[in-house]
Amino acid sequence: MPVLPQIAGYADELTAIRRDFHEHPEIGFQEVRTSGIVAELLRKWGVDEVHTGIGKTGVVGIIKGNGEGGRTVGLRADMDALPMDELTNLPYSSKNPGAFHGCGHDSHTAMLLGAARYLASTRNFSGTAVLIFQPAEEGLGGARAMIADGLFERFPCDEIYGMHNNPLAPPEEFGIKPGPAMAGATFFDITINGVGSHGAMPHHSRDPIIIASALVQNLQTIVSRNVEATEPAVFSVTQIHSGSAYNVVPDKAVISGTIRYFSDHVRDVIHQRAEKICAGFAEAYEVEIIADLRPTFDVLMNDADLAEAYREAAGEIVGAAKATVTKDLMTGSEDFADMLKVVPGAYCTLGHKGDVPVHNPGFLLDDDMLPIGASIMARIVEKRMPL
């Protein structure tokens, strides 16, 4: 089965919708225009229920199938843009400075809208489809906000599915990994409160820059000397901030970065070692060091059976040869993991033309993927809740 004919018939409309979102990007929890258009289109296409304001700017649509059945399948897409400038020079480039759909969430929203339109018009399934349009995926906790707002109490799901574009995979290639698939992530800020002095008299100081330099070196030993070699993990210091003048030893330095891991045990080991190292440095250098470690993303765990069901559904659209199972772990993170901790499900990638990675100011998305992704999403609903 190729792209579903009904969806192929309005592929150009999906492209126009996606490019409109692209031209007017909104960062996390500010997706007022985007969520408004989503809700308007869902109502226009006859979705049974449309609920707004869930997790601040989230939208949920409900579609009931033609057949009797009490099962419920959820489909989720994220809507937010990244806080970065666009350098693509596209005719529909971002009109909002400092905001850019550099991760392709505009395509995810458009694909779920395409699936919603199809499902609302055909209803060739038993049970209920729950369409979840999530805000603030990019590190701001949009999934957790929707869950805290009663997402799954108000709209129970037996299983749930998500999708992400992948410019580094061959076009139309569906990829999925059962079990742990994407890393959990902690963001951290370590503040060193030292003692400042004149730059010519550093012996009067407790120099936070010297302490920060040594601390970074020690933090980098945590993974190599505390985590088993068979357990993948990453500890990256990505920022050091301190000082304001040539002749002043500052009184404060801040080290920031991210930690990635694929198990809660490894996360806990890294956190504990980082906190102990900071405490030891504070005592040794007679300063205050505050370690703020914030687990922001959970490890994304795909249910093995549902991952296989997703792959089979995708194979009916892209062909069995392009519906692949991968063994590769992704050290990137995705807050759909929070939803998968509550409801079993699976998360996949879909390849498209282009070789610029996401989160790059020159990232380009191939609109040819839109009807493909929409068809896969629609098909998993039909297969999991057949008439």
Rank of each mutant, 00 (worst) to 15 (best):
P2A: 11
I7R: 02
G9V: 08
Y10G: 03
A11V: 07
D12M: 10
E13A: 07
I17R: 00
H24N: 15
H24G: 13
S35M: 05
I37N: 07
E40K: 12
R43N: 12
K44S: 14
W45V: 11
V47H: 02
E49D: 14
G53N: 05
I54W: 13
K56L: 08
V59E: 03
E68Q: 10
E68Y: 11
G69V: 02
G74K: 12
A77K: 05
A81S: 14
T88Q: 05
N96Y: 09
F100P: 06
G102K: 07
H105G: 03
Y118T: 02
L119Y: 02
L119G: 02
A120N: 11
V130I: 15
L131V: 13
A145D: 03
A148V: 03
D149R: 12
F152S: 09
F155D: 09
E159W: 04
N166I: 01
A169L: 03
P171I: 06
F174K: 02
K177W: 00
F188R: 04
I192C: 10
N193K: 15
G199I: 01
H204S: 15
H204I: 15
I210Y: 09
A212W: 09
Q220F: 01
Q220L: 08
E228F: 12
E231M: 14
H241N: 15
I255V: 10
G257D: 05
S263V: 02
H265W: 11
H265G: 14
D268A: 13
I270D: 12
R273T: 11
A274G: 06
G280E: 00
A282I: 01
I289T: 00
I289F: 00
D292V: 07
L293K: 09
F297V: 11
M301W: 15
N302S: 03
N302E: 08
Y310R: 00
R311S: 04
V318Y: 09
A346K: 01
C348R: 00
C348W: 00
T349R: 12
G354A: 06
D367Q: 10
L370N: 03
I372K: 04
S375I: 00
I380W: 05
